[in-house]
């Protein structure tokens, strides 16, 4: 038992991390490279979602609304869909239904998802800096999702990093 607690204690020493890079097939054809996204010199929000995950759709709807507003957030959004074959035919209709305009990377085997979040629970999002550092992770539905993202990016810009 002592070993386990020692391991847990040591593992609480957190280290600032780089986001695992990935390339993936896009809904509608083509490929997306996370690394190339950083070339725009903007923060990137990677949102993992599934067509059956209601809180994920809520968050994406809120993001869509925010990007349609006059005060458009200053970060890019990449969504990674983790629907398995049972529900994968719902992805395209769901995107159209809600009018999502963000790129949708298809991850039916959840390989990308596992790299970021081994527990693979939804909703899950990761905010990355323009250099690929993980700034913040969001697990579960959070009402102040967008303001938390903007606060994190403001803090980053304020720090001059």
């Amino acid at each position: 038992m002592r070993i386990i607690f020692a391991l847990l204690l040591i593992s609480t020493v957190a280290v600032a991390g780089k986001a695992p890079l990935f390339n993936g097939d896009l809904l509608g054809g083509g490929r997306l490279s996370l690394k190339k996204t950083f070339e725009k010199q903007k923060g990137v929000l990677v949102c993992f979602w599934a067509s059956w995950c209601t809180p994920c759709l809520e968050e994406l709807k809120n993001l869509t609304d925010a990007f349609k507003s006059s005060q458009k957030p200053d970060f890019d959004v990449i969504t990674v869909n983790v629907d398995t074959p049972d529900t994968s035919s719902d992805v395209n209709p769901t995107v159209r239904f809600y009018g999502f305009s963000f790129p949708v990377v298809l991850d039916p085997k959840q390989d990308i998802f596992a790299k970021y979040h081994q527990e693979r629970t939804l909703p899950f999002s990761v905010l990355l800096s323009q250099t690929g550092d993980i700034l913040q992770t969001f697990t579960g539905h959070q009402d102040d999702f967008i303001s938390q993202i903007q606060n994190a990016l403001s803090a980053l810009n304020g720090s001059g990093l």
Binding site: D90, N92, T94, R96, F97
Partner: peptide, 10 residues
């Protein structure tokens, strides 16, 4: 599938 807000039918 047929999608036309507010309906989704499959």
């Amino acid at each position: 599938s047929w999608v036309s807000a507010p309906w989704k039918v499959k």
